[in-house]
Simulated scan of single mutants.
Amino acid sequence: MNSMTLPLLAARQPLAIVVLVVAIIAGLTIADWLFPLGLLAYALMVFFGMRDPVLIDAARRPPPAPRPRLTSPTFRAQIEAIERTHQEITRSAAQSGGPLARLLLPIAEQGRELVEEAYILADKGQIIERYLASVDRRKLEQEVAAIDRQMQSTQDPYTRSQLEETRQARLEKIQNVRDLDTYIGRISAQLQNISASLDNVLAETVRLRTADAASADSTTSQVARRLADLKSDMDAFQAVLDTALARSGAM
């Protein structure tokens, strides 16, 4: 962890900044002695902020990769719901305090990783959306029918061979489009699964705030395993999805 990162995070907290600004204004307009007093209050806020588990966790975390820009209304709405739930999980974990916060903050971090994965998944979903919108399926089927008629009317082996290859290429494209139709449904279902899983995690974090330490430790371990399993499922699905996108030429 960079030694300057945590102090800077603590110094830039909104409430601390407000205290600093008020101290400067009060020192300039009301009484000189208010400035050092306000500065002391600001320093104390920074000091205690550096002991905040949420800020410590944020300082240890590597900077996130740039998120893709979502233009699809469907996928953007799903991602916004996922993000809201994760923010509530992080807030609930931070408000727990003490040993429970140390148990729940790793859960919040796992949730953040799922949010990042969800962004990648939604971006692939909107790539498929755009590709499918550009494909004229009726035209593809008409081309296959036209090729069939040409093959019936030709006696030249070379011409027939070329037409067969063209027909096969068109059929493969039609099948790829159908596969992508299926995958876009699976992406939406996967995002719904992430959203529902995070909703359950939020409920667990709220419930654990009234639980004893032993049961909290056991429950958080179970939640962590479920989130890890979900991430593994997502990684496997994305690998399959990448193959399908490459085959279709959508990417």
Rank of each mutant, 00 (worst) to 15 (best):
P63F: 00
F237L: 09
D136S: 09
Q110W: 02
P68F: 00
S188E: 07
D199F: 04
P53G: 02
L132Q: 10
R178V: 01
E164R: 15
I30Y: 08
A94W: 06
S3W: 07
A145C: 01
F47W: 05
A11K: 14
D57L: 02
T182L: 05
R226T: 06
E83L: 00
A10D: 03
D148G: 11
V223T: 13
S153A: 14
A250W: 02
A228P: 07
R207V: 04
A41K: 09
S221I: 03
R170V: 03
R178L: 04
S218T: 14
L180W: 10
M50K: 12
I30Q: 10
A216Y: 13
L245P: 10
T159P: 02
M45H: 12
T85N: 01
M151C: 04
E141K: 15
L6W: 07
G185W: 06
L15N: 13
R170E: 04
R60Y: 06
Q126C: 00
L208F: 08
D32C: 00
L103E: 08
A23I: 05
A59I: 09
S3D: 11
N193G: 13
Q142N: 15
D179M: 01
G249R: 12
A169F: 05
F48W: 15
V240I: 06
I25F: 08
I17S: 11
G125A: 05
L230G: 14
R67M: 00
D217I: 03
I25S: 12
N2Y: 08
G97I: 05
P53A: 01
P62V: 07
A211E: 12
P66S: 08
